[in-house]
Amino acid sequence: MTTRKKYTRKFKDEAVELFLASDLPITQVATKVGVKAGTLGNWIKRYREANPEKFDTGEQESVSFAEHQKVVAENAKLKQEIEFLGKVSLDSNRQGNTSGFRVVRSCWASSGVRKLKHFRGRVLSS
């Protein structure tokens, strides 16, 4: 049975401050400190909860209702355009979004090269 390691508050705070001061990912800082990334992540979470003043960036930007409605309307319009383009694509080739080159029937030429006889339902040669 393994024993659980206990870390001092000072060690935890220094590890968190090392992470916050560097631009390194949690995994690299955790390796340097000698703990698992999940453990360091938990320490960072608790540190932020205990010290919210260090992470308070001031007022959050609020968006006016009119601007919000404008973005919602634009989003709805773009969704309609995407839906329309999907339907047009399905109707244009009757196959959905598949490649236009579809060999329905082919034949062997005298040179041994396959010739395309049909393209999108149209006979190219007889």
Rank of each mutant, 00 (worst) to 15 (best):
M1R: 10
T2E: 07
T3C: 11
T3S: 14
Y7M: 02
Y7H: 14
K10T: 01
F11S: 06
D13Q: 11
D13M: 03
V16R: 00
L18T: 14
L20N: 11
S22N: 08
D23V: 03
L24G: 04
T27A: 10
Q28N: 15
K32S: 09
V33E: 00
V33K: 06
K36C: 02
A37T: 10
A37I: 04
G41F: 05
N42Q: 12
W43I: 01
W43V: 02
I44P: 00
K45W: 09
R46Q: 10
R48Y: 02
R48C: 03
E49R: 15
E49K: 15
E49G: 09
E53M: 06
K54E: 06
D56R: 08
D56M: 05
Q60V: 13
F65M: 07
H68G: 05
H68C: 02
Q69H: 10
K70V: 02
V72I: 08
V72S: 09
Q80R: 13
E81P: 00
E83Q: 15
G86M: 08
G86C: 07
K87V: 05
S89C: 10
S89M: 08
D91G: 07
S92K: 12
N93T: 06
N97K: 15
R102N: 12
V103H: 13
V103T: 13
S106N: 05
G112L: 05
V113I: 13
V113P: 02
K115H: 14
G121I: 04
